[in-house]
């Protein structure tokens, strides 16, 4: 089954991890990559521009109802939950989930619903357990799951919490996650072409 979307969740230590991940994706990476990085509700912008510097894919914060495009990276805007519906982004100002808005679980559960087995979920470093429920849902819908190896992650709680609920398809050190995604995505493309 060809994957159609990659969702990534991270919190503490996420900036560096996202730089590594994004810089490792090939320029022709053909799926949308949608990222939730926990961030303060009042901190100023600039995160997006910062990540764009290390990414070959364009990185933007989506507006409400903006269509989800392939080959682009999207960063959940601060102080909103990010959801996807009928191929477009949908924002919400529902209360924080486990103190987080944007919440990784909200995005992942919604994507599991919307994309089923065509979703790839990735959990990186973080100091809380957001994302564990969402990743489990992606897995239960037949999607692909990757978790950063907690042994080597900057902050191990989030990967560990995810692994406690999901037998991830891949548990990898940070540097190997982008190459794995490149392979997963292009392998399917080759398979499709043949």
């Amino acid at each position: 089954m060809a994957s159609e979307i990659v969702v990534v969740g991270t919190s503490t230590g996420g900036l560096k991890a996202l730089q590594t991940l994004l810089s490792g994706l090939t320029a022709d990476f053909r799926l949308p990559v949608v990222i939730v990085q926990h961030r303060g509700s009042t901190s100023e912008n600039g995160l997006c521009e910062f990540l764009a510097q290390s990414s070959r894919l364009p990185v933007t914060e989506p507006e409400d109802k903006e269509p989800v495009m392939s080959g682009r990276a999207y960063l959940a805007p601060r102080d909103y939950h990010l959801l996807i519906e009928n191929g477009s982004f949908a924002l919400s100002v529902d209360p924080a989930v486990a103190y987080a808005r944007p919440s990784i679980d909200v995005l992942f559960e919604c994507v599991a619903d919307e994309y089923g087995e065509k979703a790839i979920g990735v959990i990186l470093t973080g100091a809380n357990n957001d994302g564990a429920r969402g990743l489990a849902k992606i897995s239960s819908q037949g999607g692909v799951t990757l978790v950063e190896n907690p042994e080597t992650a900057a902050s191990h709680e989030m990967p560990r919490a995810a692994l406690a609920q999901t037998r991830a398809d891949w548990v990898l050190p940070l540097e190997e996650i982008a190459p794995c995604l490149n392979k997963l995505v292009s392998a399917v493309a080759v398979h499709y072409g043949s």
Binding site: L83, I84, E85, A90, S92, D94, V106, E109, C110, D113, E114
Partner: peptide, 9 residues
């Protein structure tokens, strides 16, 4: 209403 949000609610 946006189905994704209202479903969650």
């Amino acid at each position: 209403y946006s189905r994704a949000s209202i479903k969650r609610r």
